[in-house]
Simulated scan of single mutants.
Amino acid sequence: MRFVIAPDSYKGSLTSREVGAIMAAAVRREIPDAEIDVIPMADGGEGTVEALVEASGGSYEEFVVHGPLEPGTVARMGLIRVGGEPVYVIETANICGLPMVTAEGRDPYAATSRGLGEMIVHALDSGAARLIVGLGGSAVNDGGMGMLAALGVLFRDAEGRQLHGRGRDLLRVAGVDWSGLDPRLATCEITAASDVTSPLTGPAGATFVYGPQKGVTPGQAAELDEAMRRYADMLEPDASGDGLADCAGAGAAGGLGYALLRLGARIESGAEVVARAAGLQERIRGADWVLTGEGRTDAQTLSGKLPFRVAEWAAGEGVPAILVSGGLGPAIEPLYARFAAIFPIVARPATLDECVSEAEDNLMRCMRSITRLIKTARG
């Protein structure tokens, strides 16, 4: 029996590689002669660098960059080859990511994407002509101002003082000077990998939809959203009609999607970028089962999150898919049209901290039960 295991991470608990390894161990325990192909996945968020490097047999390099709040974060950049050409891979989640800040320390006014700009400079210093930037899991809501400042864009307030690109600077910015932008970006092809389709501003934008998980309070949201709109007008003074701020994905990673679009990047589905590099569809072909997973399954999964896409690719090859989730939220009934079955791994009523600490044991137990069902049904 042949299994393809292609999970996302259980964010804050297990990486996609760890999830895949546990799933594979459970299958082997119950079906020792099973053929298993483990493909760690990501959608542009946490684990994107690792997923692409593993899929492509690439390598890593570490750099010290600015974290979401303070300098001194050690982050990894990947180097892979696509079509024989070198491509550098970085992600917001390991530079200015939400898990890097405690729940009590999340501050949309203080957080900055500056470290991402510093990592792009490191890639350019290494000779990057093609760059993949994973957008997802960020702690920032600065419209990418910090990243742009690190790349040489000069922002000033009404008194002419230089701004360094924290969330609070959206409220103060009065002028922008592009003359210092790193000229090497003009010849660097940038792909922003993200499955977020939100525009930059408005009720469906970065601040209102994703801001609350980064510490934005209801009283701050309207002020920050309006400041983000003025900031976009400043960056695109000649935009007529719908500008880049209205593009799908501009609101990804607290507005980093917009800033990258302003640099000439194109936004692609993060799941598709990783799947293409891994040759996922070809590896699914001829399998008996596809197993995927994520930390929490809810209505957002229906909007094209990674497990949903994996199920689509499996269906295209006529292979049933099973979703194994850290937990189930509301409004998931339509997912049963896509998956042969959906399982939560939680074993008992528990706090979030308990679920995180018990994730490995719970996943192993759940996967053993699933595999035993498959084995029994097959006879």
Rank of each mutant, 00 (worst) to 15 (best):
F308N: 09
L373D: 00
V356D: 05
L79T: 06
R372K: 12
A299F: 11
G180T: 07
Q213M: 03
I90V: 15
M1H: 13
A221P: 11
D195P: 02
W289R: 14
M367D: 10
R156P: 04
L235R: 05
A377P: 00
P307L: 07
P203C: 08
A265Y: 14
A277Y: 05
V176M: 06
M1C: 04
S194A: 09
A277P: 04
K305I: 08
S325T: 13
D246W: 12
R184M: 01
E317S: 14
G78Q: 06
L328Y: 02
A275E: 08
I190Q: 01
Y109L: 15
A227M: 13
V101R: 11
L79I: 04
A129P: 00
I374W: 05
T112M: 11
G57A: 04
T102W: 00
I31S: 10
D238A: 09
H164F: 13
T371Q: 09
S59A: 12
R378A: 13
D233A: 13
Y10G: 08
E354V: 14
R29K: 10
T217C: 05
G58Q: 06
E118V: 12
I370K: 09
A111P: 06
G175D: 14
V176D: 01
G115R: 01
L116W: 03
A314I: 01
S325L: 03
V74N: 10
L151P: 12
D288K: 15
L291F: 10
G143E: 03
R285M: 08
Q300L: 03
D238K: 01
G293S: 14
A158C: 06
K305A: 01
V74T: 13
E18G: 04
G152R: 02
A75G: 04
L363T: 09
E317Y: 09
H66Q: 04
D242F: 06
E118D: 08
V209N: 01
A315S: 12
A21P: 01
I120V: 15
L171Y: 10
F3N: 12
D125G: 06
